[in-house]
């Protein structure tokens, strides 16, 4: 059994569906409030900071939550090799806490800035297309993704633009393949324009990991694409075809959607670690 903490910071609003998505891949999820006793945090094998508006995005998205003692404790567990996934607002928290990209661990090396697209400011909710570039995060978060595979998932954010003002950081995340997920065109090619590039992020980044690959700051919402029923019928892709073919078939609709691959990847590592060999921190836990 692997236990995952879904961190409920005030203002977070995706904790229930995120917990359900973790449960459906065989993990045991518990929603843990930000102010629960310090001792609870070490009990878990993995941590997910879900989407929402932690502390109302006061000061900046993720800025206040990044300073919470709970995030300190999760950072310490990540140091021991446990996986930490930040989805949307959770990604903003991880970047503001200096955990991603973490070239110099603890140092803040990026921002998640307001979306930038021609004549389209503000919050944007729509399905987008993702591609994977293998990197240190592959085994935790993109196992079983085929080369060239295009994965549709919805985004819903106003501040999703990964950005660094430090040219060295820019270079390292590129060379070291820390941009695990990026926005692509439906064909899988580079996303050169809105809406395929929805927010103007550097390197079209949708998800960036740390060097160890166990921490992922991910802007799209895999928990909103974990069941086939969540996929729009008219998505122009094999997923849309599967969705249309499943009209009238509830069992098929309750089957996997495109985003489940990310949770499955996490689960297969947590549930059968032998397949991946020893993970750092595993000994410390047992």
């Amino acid at each position: 059994m692997a236990r995952v903490a879904v961190v409920q910071i005030p203002g977070v609003n995706c904790e229930y569906e995120t917990a359900r998505a973790l449960e459906v891949v065989g993990l045991t999820a518990r929603i843990v409030r930000w102010n629960e006793p310090a001792s609870v945090w070490s009990e878990f094998d993995a941590y997910v900071i879900p989407g929402g508006f932690a502390f109302q995005d006061r000061i900046r998205a993720g800025a206040v939550a990044a300073k919470l003692p709970a995030v300190d404790r999760i950072a310490a567990e990540a140091e021991r090799g446990k996986p930490v996934l930040g989805i949307c607002n959770g990604a903003q928290v991880l970047v503001e806490a200096g955990l991603v990209p973490g070239l110099h661990p603890g140092r803040v090396e990026m921002a998640l800035a307001p979306n930038r697209a021609p004549r389209r400011e503000g919050y944007l909710c729509r399905w987008s297309w993702l591609g994977v570039t293998p990197g240190p995060g592959s085994s935790w978060y993109a196992r079983n993704v085929r080369p060239g595979q295009v994965i549709p998932m919805p985004i819903a954010h106003g501040e999703g633009r990964f950005l660094t003002a430090d040219p060295e950081v820019q270079e390292r995340i590129e060379i070291e393949n820390l941009v695990l997920y990026r926005f692509v065109a439906p064909s899988g090619g580079r996303a050169v324009r809105y809406p395929f590039d929805p927010n103007g992020a550097t390197l079209q980044a949708a998800g960036i990991t740390n060097r160890a690959g166990n921490i992922l700051a991910f802007m799209p919402h895999p928990e909103r694409a974990t069941w086939l029923r969540q996929v729009p019928l008219e998505l122009k892709n094999a997923w849309g075809e599967s969705r249309r073919a499943a009209v009238g078939n509830w069992e098929a609709l309750e089957g996997p959607g495109p985003g489940r691959i990310l949770f499955q990847s996490l689960a297969s590592n947590l549930l059968s670690p032998s397949a991946e060999g020893a993970r750092p921190g595993r000994e410390a836990r047992s």
Partner: peptide
């Protein structure tokens, strides 16, 4: 300006 979890809060220097 934000540097790490203990230093900085009001400004993220990568965006501002």
């Amino acid at each position: 300006e934000l540097r790490d979890q203990r230093h900085g809060l009001l400004v993220n220097p990568h965006a501002e």
